[in-house]
Design a protein around this nucleic acid. Structure first.
Length: 351
DNA sequence: AAGCCGGGGTT
DNA sequence: AACCCAGGCTT
């Protein structure tokens, strides 16, 4: 007679249903670490091409450490949460300082920039089979439903409770497989909305299923409110076709990325309000120019906590500007997606 | 403890 | 429009 075992069940399920992902067939901490940073708050399908590009560009952690931050940010362009890229680069240099040797345990891994409790547990278990449980969004969902726990997953008490429970259900003899399995189970079977419980191997012992609470769990409180912003980008075009880019400050949104100079406002602006603005004068001085609006209707760019209403103004000037860059130089700079989309449309670039 | 930090896919 | 995603850092 055998007793029902949570870890055995999800690991058996995993061996049948697991996806074939390039960072799963290795114990090398470098690709494991790289994949985990890329996948933070990012879906597998979105992160996958970035993983391939990074491995191609930087086959070893030393290659990554030796790159410039701008090179790393450019490769990261479009993925979001750009502090991950800066931390990734810093951590690569930390590792290079150790002759390329990663810390070999959970505690040591936590010293790497950008590596928190989840990522340290993931690397420690996947690379070294250290019995430390990962707790990500998938794990919160699976455990909260299976055990019927309604503590909010974004409050200190709930976080501690789930971390403790996750370690209790972890089979220490199968740490790597167990951690992979519970996350894959959450990603493919115990999905956020309308999971197909009929085919779930845990259906007979799932608390949420028994009590009809599947769609109420996990509990997460507080919602981020969205702030509306209006950006009027000044797209300089010099006689030779060059333009002006400025780098954003090293803190805040899109830190360190490049964009056209812009005027912030509370809504639409008239041409004379643009050309009379201090920012405009700072960029173009007393040069002669011809201005035109590129998009009459604002382009909406939605982030998790902001909605940006973007207007692009084409400012053709009749003299060269000292700090202008060519289009090819511009394309080497890391930019956010709003910029990337405009650049591709305006200069009619392929891809 | 709470807020900040992107972009894309689903519902 | 709201929610979610192989979260971590800062204040």
């Amino acid at each position: 007679m055998t007793t029902f075992n949570f870890s055995d069940t999800i690991r058996s399920w995993y061996e049948i249903h697991k996806r074939d992902l390039p960072w799963r067939d290795t114990r090398d901490p470098y690709p494991i670490w790289l994949s985990e940073i890329i996948l933070q708050q990012t879906r597998v399908n979105q992160g996958l091409p970035y993983f391939e590009r990074f491995i191609e560009a930087f086959p070893t952690v030393q290659n990554l450490a030796a790159a410039s931050q701008e090179e790393v940010l450019k490769l990261w362009q479009g993925l979001g949460y750009y502090s991950r890229a800066r931390n990734l680069h810093t951590a690569a240099q930390q590792i290079a300082d150790r002759r390329g040797i990663f810390p070999d345990n959970f505690k040591g891994l936590l010293d790497l920039k950008g590596v928190g409790s989840y990522t340290a547990a993931a690397i420690a278990s996947f690379a070294y089979d250290e019995p430390v449980a990962v707790v990500d969004g998938n794990v919160y969902r699976v455990l909260s439903r299976y055990y019927g726990i309604d503590d909010p997953i974004n409050e200190t008490m709930g976080i501690k409770k789930f971390q403790k429970l996750a370690n209790e259900v972890l089979d220490p003899k199968h740490a790597a497989q167990h951690n992979q399995a519970i996350m894959e189970f959450g990603a493919l079977q115990c999905v956020p909305s309308s999971p197909d419980c009929k085919v779930c191997p845990l259906i007979n012992t799932c608390k949420a299923y028994q009590t009809g609470q599947v769609d109420q769990l996990p509990v997460k409180i507080k919602k981020t409110k969205v702030l509306n912003l209006h950006h009027h980008y000044l797209v300089a075009i010099t006689p030779s076709g060059r333009t002006i880019l400025v780098q954003r400050p090293q803190t805040g949104i899109w830190a360190g990325l490049y964009e056209f100079p812009f005027i912030e406002s509370n809504g639409a602006m008239l041409p004379q309000e643009i050309t009379g603005h201090d920012v405009f004068k700072d960029v173009f001085g007393r040069l002669r120019f011809r201005e035109s609006i590129y998009n009459q209707q604002p382009i909406l760019h939605k982030l998790s906590h902001r909605k940006i209403h973007a207007y692009f103004w084409i400012i053709e000037v009749d003299e060269e500007l000292d700090d202008a860059v060519t289009v090819n130089e511009m394309l080497k700079k890391p930019v956010h997606v709003l910029m990337e989309r405009f650049i591709k449309a305006y200069w009619k670039l392929k891809k």
